[in-house]
């Protein structure tokens, strides 16, 4: 469904991605892990065509994202849902207006049909009682759930989740994770989640990939990941301060 082939990307002096290749099968729940600033979110933005890679190819189904014109890209994006780390709900619109926005703008559905779909999606994420609230009146977990409802409202084939449980308490984080699992299973949606939260990653993933220094250094099923011999993966999973990740960094020097 999604394929990245030898993707390179840099921001000013910093090389963020240095030859990333990745394949995602339909109905898979891929979790991409990596340190903060390692380029995980950049991969999601490249799949959406919001950023353009320096080189390499990105495919969503048969479409090569980098080669699409603006109009075609907008059509392709309608098959992809995105949930942002900080939810990115439109602050001037109420919850139901936020969820209804893609339907109003991109479909010919009538008002009553839109209302029905919005109610369904809000019920799915347990937010039907908050539909008249503004995003400012919601907690972080509630916003994430509304963002998830908005991401699913067009019945996408692929959903991209950027740090879905970041900043949430463990209980609400688990609720959001469970919600992602049940939604993707029930709706047969493929998902790509980026996170550096281990518990959340192992709960969601059917397959995992580790991004380190601009490359995918390990890829496989969750169980295989736990037994990885790769010292970077092992250190990342254990959260240890001893290992190659901190070598030569100011944090390692400070520790000495």
């Amino acid at each position: 469904m999604v394929e990245l082939r030898d993707v390179h990307m840099h921001f000013e002096e910093k090389k963020v991605l240095q030859g990333v290749s990745l394949e995602v099968q339909p109905q898979e729940r891929l979790v991409i892990m990596g340190q903060s600033g390692s380029g995980k979110s950049t991969i999601l933005r490249l799949i959406l065509g919001i950023l353009r890679s320096d080189s390499g190819s990105i495919f969503f189904k048969q479409f090569e994202i980098n080669r699409l014109n603006r109009r075609k890209l907008q059509q392709v994006r309608q098959h992809i849902g995105m949930v942002y780390q900080y939810s990115a709900l439109l602050s001037s619109l109420r919850v139901r207006e936020n969820v209804a926005l893609p339907l109003e703008e991109l479909t010919d559905k009538s008002r009553s049909e839109i209302d029905k779909i919005v109610d369904e999606k809000l019920e799915l994420v347990g937010m039907q009682d908050s539909k008249d609230l503004l995003p400012d009146e919601l907690s972080g977990g509630m916003r994430k759930r509304v963002a998830l409802a908005r991401g699913l409202v067009l019945e996408p084939e692929l959903i991209l989740l950027d740090e879905p449980s970041a900043g949430l308490d463990p209980v609400i984080g688990s609720v959001v994770d469970e919600l992602i699992i049940s939604l993707t299973e029930n709706s047969k949606v493929t998902s790509i989640t980026v996170t550096h939260e281990m518990e959340s990653a192992f709960r969601i993933a059917t397959r995992m990939a580790m991004l380190y220094e601009g490359k995918i250094i390990e890829e496989g099923e969750a169980e295989k990941f736990k037994q990885s011999k790769n010292p970077v993966v092992a250190q990342f999973l254990s959260g240890s301060t001893e290992g190659p990740i901190l070598e030569g960094t100011p944090d390692a020097i400070r520790k000495k």
Partner: peptide
């Protein structure tokens, strides 16, 4: 500008809606 900083503009673009038009 605040919408841009809060990724709201990008979210609109990600939905396949033209942010300039909207």
């Amino acid at each position: 500008g605040t919408m841009q900083v809060n990724e709201e503009v990008e979210a609109v673009e990600a939905m396949g809606i033209g942010p300039l038009r909207l």
